[in-house]
């Protein structure tokens, strides 16, 4: 076991001829939460999706808990069972109720017996404050409720790393807080998280490290306190000026 949960070394990725990630290197220690920020189109989602193999890349290397991610289908499936992901637009399974959304992945992918998977789902739903709504269908939930179920669903696989891609960007302002509260709680319990977000207040309060991307390159990588109080690069300063108003 290593203390580095995620390690990215000299990663480059092209979409056709467009260079989306340019020689990106990154380390996330276990138990730390890291924020990925940067202007729209800077490659945040792409980088995040490389970490669980939803995207392939051309150069460089990704290691999760010391194991190299290679794009062989069997390896990828094994990897994704150890890396959870929460999407901007939830992607809950609309044909299943909340309980089944959370209990299906461990039941099928970890071969847990149904009763055990449902126990786990009930426990996680209670953790995100959704215990009462276990029998609802996704279409009946508000955005914030959906995202909390999506977080519980990702946790049901007991992942070593949690990835969030703008988890609050599709939410109405009242719902943002309830999702950020859940994420704060996770970070405080020592979850390893990589979070793409524009919620700079959350980043500053909760996360340990900030990685600032621009045009597919890491421009700045610093402890959260320092990044917000004294950004080293002009581009980060401009960005913070825009995002924090």
């Amino acid at each position: 076991m290593t203390d580095v949960a995620v390690e990215v070394a000299s990663l480059s990725k092209w979409f056709g001829t467009f260079l989306a990630l340019d020689d990106v290197s990154l380390r996330v220690p276990r138990g730390c939460s890291t924020v990925l920020c940067g202007p729209s189109g800077s490659g945040k989602s792409t980088l995040l999706r490389c970490l669980n193999g939803l995207e392939t890349w051309q150069e460089g290397e990704v290691r999760i808990a010391g194991t190299r991610v290679r794009s062989r289908p069997g390896d990828l499936v094994a990897l994704r069972r150890r890396v959870g992901m929460v999407f901007q637009s939830f992607h809950l399974f609309p044909h299943l109720d909340v309980l089944a959304n959370v209990s299906l992945p461990p039941r099928i992918n970890l071969r847990l017996p149904r009763a055990e998977a449902e126990d786990r789902a009930h426990r996680l739903l209670a953790e995100v404050g959704m215990a009462e709504l276990a029998r609802m269908f996704p279409a009946q939930l508000s955005g914030g409720q959906k995202q909390r179920v999506a977080i519980a669903r990702a946790l049901a696989m007991e992942p070593q790393v949690l990835l969030f891609d703008e988890p609050t960007s599709a939410l109405d302002p009242e719902s943002v807080g309830e999702v950020l509260d859940v994420m704060t709680q996770l970070a405080e319990h020592g979850r390893t998280m990589v979070v793409v977000t524009h919620e700079m207040g959350f980043a500053r309060r909760v996360c340990h490290e900030v990685v600032f991307l621009s045009d597919g390159r890491i421009v700045e990588c610093a402890p959260a306190d320092r990044f917000f109080s004294d950004p080293a690069s002009d581009r980060a300063r401009t960005f913070l000026g825009q995002v924090c108003r």
């Binding site: 992901m85 999407f87 992607h91 990702a154 696989m157």
Partner: peptide, 11 residues
Amino acid sequence: GQGEAASALGF
């Protein structure tokens, strides 16, 4: 999205 969400959960 549905396929990606399933992939990301290790299906």
